[in-house]
Write a protein that binds this DNA or RNA. Structure first.
Length: 476
DNA sequence: TTTAGGG
DNA sequence: CCCTAAA
């Protein structure tokens, strides 16, 4: 959620900037130089923006009101969702409530996403966060603390807000706070652009430049590097020898980075790029608000699966007749699933595995959509592809278990940990009945041991091709 | 759109 | 989990 972002805001290591400036001196040969200029100018605007937040200046009141309207709209949407919730309460049990609540909470995520998408200023947050404010830093820190505190309260109040769906009359607290923050950011953005223009149009800007002293040094160097061609060979030499300690932690060097940018960036690249920029590892040269869609940051998409309480998952999934009111939810969900799939990586619970095995036993391997529709209708985060992948993994691990069992039981346990024997047996059983095209190969070798081993001993490559043909036939 | 397969 | 090709 949104509060994930605040750590970046609150603790901004000072050395990052220093390093960055240093880099820019060296590697800022071509296009870094302009970036440095931006960086050197922005802090002053930030200073002003802080005042704007504190005083709630006149020009920001309008925006504030607009944002209120905006959040009202969202509130309305939530109320609709809550209506659905109520109707479900009538029929379903407690677990059902949990399930729907879970979905609604997910939807809060989506609302957040939408909010972020609409919030122009938040799109440049990365950009802003890359800026160091030597003088205004403590001030800003204070402000950000306040904002964070507000956020804390707001995010905690999410679920209560939904549970009292009928009583929601006005602007919900969370949306209000978001509006405040957006307002704050808007003012930041406005001032930033303003001062940027000032800077671009010369030194007419009357704004104080807090980093003028520190900036002069690097600016001079930048100009040197940009304007004099004599320096280029030296720099390119340095670059080619990779002696540059670049803040842009691209292992392949600057040229590769540029190549990447020139190429059409893939979605994964975009995601990783934004993710890295969020963690401060990379410093963006491209304005994030233009190039990249705002992705909620600091949600590790790998390694730490956001495992919801298994019990909840289990109980809710047991309801086969999923609530139909979440039709709309599915639609909105789809878009979410498409864009931040990896962040929604969830551990497969035992219940899910059992259900999957049941479904396969019922419908057979390959009818993933049916299984999904009938057995996983309530868990919208499992796509048919996920089911297939899971089944593939199950087969793989179960076969590995079977093979390793004889030689090393511990290793086998490690492979298929947390899977009860009954489940493993069922998987193996199903594997024989409905052999999965690709993995059945290894599985068949354990089940139909004599046949495959004979074939393997008789021939080399032809045999494998033959078996592949068999697999193909099975598919068709 | 669904499924298979590779990464 | 992601991506792509094929049906």
């Amino acid at each position: 959620m949104r509060m994930d972002r605040k750590p970046h805001l609150t603790k901004k290591p000072a050395d990052v900037k220093c390093q960055r400036v240093d880099d820019s001196i060296v590697s800022g040969l071509e296009d870094e130089a302009t970036d440095v200029e931006h960086l050197l100018v922005e802090p002053q605007s930030e200073h002003i923006s802080v005042d704007g937040v504190l005083c709630f200046g006149k020009e920001s009141i309008e925006k504030h009101l607009k944002m209120e309207d905006f959040s009202c709209a969202f509130d309305y949407g939530w109320k609709i969702g809550c209506g659905g919730l109520d109707s479900i309460y009538g029929e379903g049990g407690d677990d059902m409530k949990l399930e729907v609540l879970d979905g609604l909470l997910d939807e809060v995520d989506e609302v957040d996403d939408i909010h972020a998408a609409h919030d122009l200023s938040s799109a440049c947050e990365d950009f802003l966060l890359d800026i160091e404010f030597p003088e205004t830093f403590s001030e800003l820190d204070h402000i950000s603390h306040e904002v964070s505190n507000l956020h804390n309260s707001s995010s905690e109040s999410h679920s209560p807000g939904f549970s009292v769906s009928n009583s929601v009359g006005g602007i919900s607290e969370s949306s209000f706070v978001t509006a405040q923050e957006s307002n704050y950011k808007n003012s930041v953005l406005g001032k930033m652009v303003n001062c940027d223009l000032h800077h671009t149009f010369g030194s007419k800007c009357s704004c104080p430049d807090p980093v003028m002293e520190t900036g002069r040094h690097s600016k001079e160097h930048d100009q040197d590097f940009v304007e004099s061609d004599d320096e280029k060979p030296l720099v390119s030499f340095i670059l080619s020898n990779k002696k540059v300690k670049s803040s842009v932690e691209v292992p392949k060097g600057d040229t590769h980075l540029r190549q990447k940018i020139l190429r059409k960036p893939t979605r994964r690249y975009i995601e990783e790029f934004s993710r890295n920029s969020a963690t401060g590892k990379k410093c963006l040269k491209v304005e994030p608000q233009k190039e990249f869609p705002q992705v909620p940051e600091s949600q590790p998409w790998r390694g730490r699966p956001t495992k919801t309480v298994p019990k909840l998952e289990f109980e809710s999934d047991c309801e086969l007749s999923a609530s139909e009111p979440d039709d709309e939810r599915k639609r909105t969900k789809r878009s979410k699933m498409v864009c931040d799939r990896r962040k929604n990586q969830r551990m497969w619970t035992l219940a899910e595995v059992i259900k999957l095995v049941d479904g396969i036993a019922q419908y057979g391997v390959g009818r993933w959509t049916d299984i999904k529709k009938l057995l996983f209708a309530s868990s919208s985060h499992r796509t048919p592809v996920d089911l297939r992948d899971k089944w593939r993994n199950l087969l793989r691990s179960s076969s590995a278990l079977e093979q390793n069992m004889r030689e090393d039981e511990a290793n086998a346990k490690h492979n298929v940990r947390m899977l009860p024997k009954t489940v493993v047996c069922r998987i193996r059983e199903l594997a024989t009945i409905h052999p999965y095209p690709k993995v059945c190969n290894s599985n068949l070798s354990s089940v139909d041991n004599d046949l495959s081993s004979k074939q393997l001993t008789t021939g080399g490559a032809p045999v494998s091709s033959h078996r592949r043909n068999l697999r193909r036939k099975k598919c068709n």
